[in-house]
Design a protein around this nucleic acid. Structure first.
Lengths: 144, 144
DNA sequence: AAAATTAGTAGACATATTCCACTAATTTTT
DNA sequence: AAAAATTAGTGGAATATGTCTACTAATTTT
């Protein structure tokens, strides 16, 4: 393994971190913080998920997560239903308002990405996402 | 431009953000926070840089940056020298201790990346960094 | 020379995040 | 079945992170 690969990957990490940082900064005009958005996303993707399941998924502190969820509950974005199988945990679901909030975030996020992609030619887009897929495939198999 | 490109790029963003997040979490065993590390890096790369130059580079609040630099100065990691051309600003340089601290961070960061890459075959590494280079080239030209 | 701008700092403040101890529910051990 | 150990989620303190405003001193513009 060539040592230059290491510095190339690190350069890419810097580049991409900065890029995503810019997107996130634009994004945070809404009322939700980044971790809040991710939690909302997790509940949207898997209705009935518990806090305990979100923790490893998002690598988020359980106490911090608890506070976020309590906030969501107060704002009536999610509901908690005591789990039938384990009364210590709650099943989380989006309310209609929560789903709406999610959709707003989702659309905004798509819009930012689209604004970048429309600046490229069709073949460039094609090649870009091809490369991204390949990076995901290759790195998806390594243990971090 | 196909709409699927948007969702594919967003999927990649989620994937890569999570990956870098894991690397950063491992990384933060040292005494420096993430923004501190970036500031140290910026001074290392460009000896004599001023706070005002770091602000747009790192998209960091000038007051926040000022506090970081003052902390670095107290810990004797950087020195401030009044700029010859403008006495309001300071030229920043790493001390020997600062350089050492930087090198520790730098090596740690390289080690984590290397640990991932050694799990891949030579051709996979080659393809991976090739894709990363291409992503950087293509996205480097778009306005975010 | 006066007015406006700029670099960096200080302090108050808000928010984000971590840490630890706690409660209640559950599982394991004896 | 009772006791002990573990687990899910919560509360509160402590810390980190980041923002905002106002300030000082230096510089530039008028």
């Amino acid at each position: 393994m060539k040592e230059s690969y290491v510095s190339e990957m690190r350069a890419f990490n810097r580049f991409y971190t900065a890029l995503v940082g810019v997107l996130n900064r634009k994004f945070l005009n809404g009322r939700l913080s980044l971790p809040e958005t991710r939690v909302l996303h997790a509940i949207h993707v898997q209705e009935g998920i518990t806090a305990g399941e979100i923790v490893p998924l998002l690598h988020i502190d359980k106490s911090y997560l608890s506070k976020i969820i309590i906030r969501f509950e107060k704002e009536k974005l999610v509901t908690k239903k005591v789990s039938a199988s384990d009364a210590r945990s709650y099943q989380l679901r989006l309310t209609a308002a929560g789903r709406k909030e999610f959709e707003v975030c989702d659309r905004m996020s798509s819009d930012f990405v689209r604004q970048m992609l429309v600046q490229l030619r069709e073949e460039e887009c094609e090649e870009l996402v091809g490369c991204m897929r390949r990076v995901t495939e290759i790195l998806g198999r390594v243990r971090v």
